[in-house]
């Protein structure tokens, strides 16, 4: 029956493209999470009234984050071609999409991290300081621990955005479902290929959302 609805779909190619999309998403989400949390912490801690208050550092970080967050992703990919070539010696394949994916998503997530950290009651940070907590303890056991649900729901939203980015990255030759839908589906007018790729992308998004919601709810003890 599947053959009937999707006559032109080569399931081996479809499977390979799915794998590439999942691969690009997973790696970029992992690196984005780390970079985003670091940048978010830097933004939070150097902002006004916080422990490392520093107007200069905050302003520079903030401007950079805003710039990379504002550039439309499709343009960012093109702009980053020299950088990617320098880094990986190629601009084709799933790995070549990673720098653009991460640079596009990390600032986006950094802002969400900053907002999540701002939600923490200042009194709790003060309490930790009053107990003699070091900066490391405050970061890991107070800031990150207390904002866990927001950090997880933030990375869920970011991961879903990244699935969309991978599809765009496909257009410039990164592979994956976006690439397949565009080249095999759109350009050859095989609507069933486009449809199948879309359905798989939707499934990936649903799974990410489900996992994200599950952990957010479990972590939230408020």
């Amino acid at each position: 029956m599947i053959e009937q609805f999707f006559p032109n779909v080569n399931w081996d190619t479809m499977f390979e493209a799915t794998y590439e999309t999942v691969y690009m998403t997973a790696i970029s989400v992992a690196i984005t999470a780390v970079l985003g949390i670091l940048l978010g912490l830097l933004l939070f801690l150097t902002s006004k009234g916080n422990i490392w208050e520093n107007r200069g550092v905050y302003a520079i970080t903030s401007v950079l984050v805003n710039i990379f967050r504002s550039i439309p992703f499709i343009i960012l990919i093109v702009l980053l071609i020299p950088f990617t070539r320098f880094l990986l010696d190629t601009i084709r394949g799933a790995n070549a999409a990673l720098p653009a994916l991460i640079i596009g998503a990390a600032p986006f997530y950094a802002r969400m991290v900053e907002i999540a950290l701002r939600e923490i009651d200042k009194g709790v940070i003060e309490a930790a300081r009053s107990m003699g907590a070091s900066m490391t303890t405050i970061i890991f056991k107070v800031l990150l621990a207390e904002s866990k649900p927001a950090l997880v729901s933030g990375i869920t939203v970011t991961a879903i955005a990244l699935v969309g980015y991978t599809a765009m990255a496909g257009v410039i030759g990164a592979g994956g479902l976006g690439n397949l839908a565009f080249l095999d589906g759109f350009q050859r007018s095989r609507d069933d290929v486009t449809l199948a790729a879309t359905i798989i992308i939707l499934l990936i998004v649903f799974v990410i959302q489900f996992i994200g919601d599950f952990f957010t709810n479990r972590l939230d003890k408020r």
């Binding site: 709790v124 309490a127 003890k221």
Partner: peptide, 10 residues
């Protein structure tokens, strides 16, 4: 403290 300032995640 007035508002207790407990860690809600613990």
């Amino acid at each position: 403290f007035q508002h207790f300032n407990l860690l809600w995640s613990r």
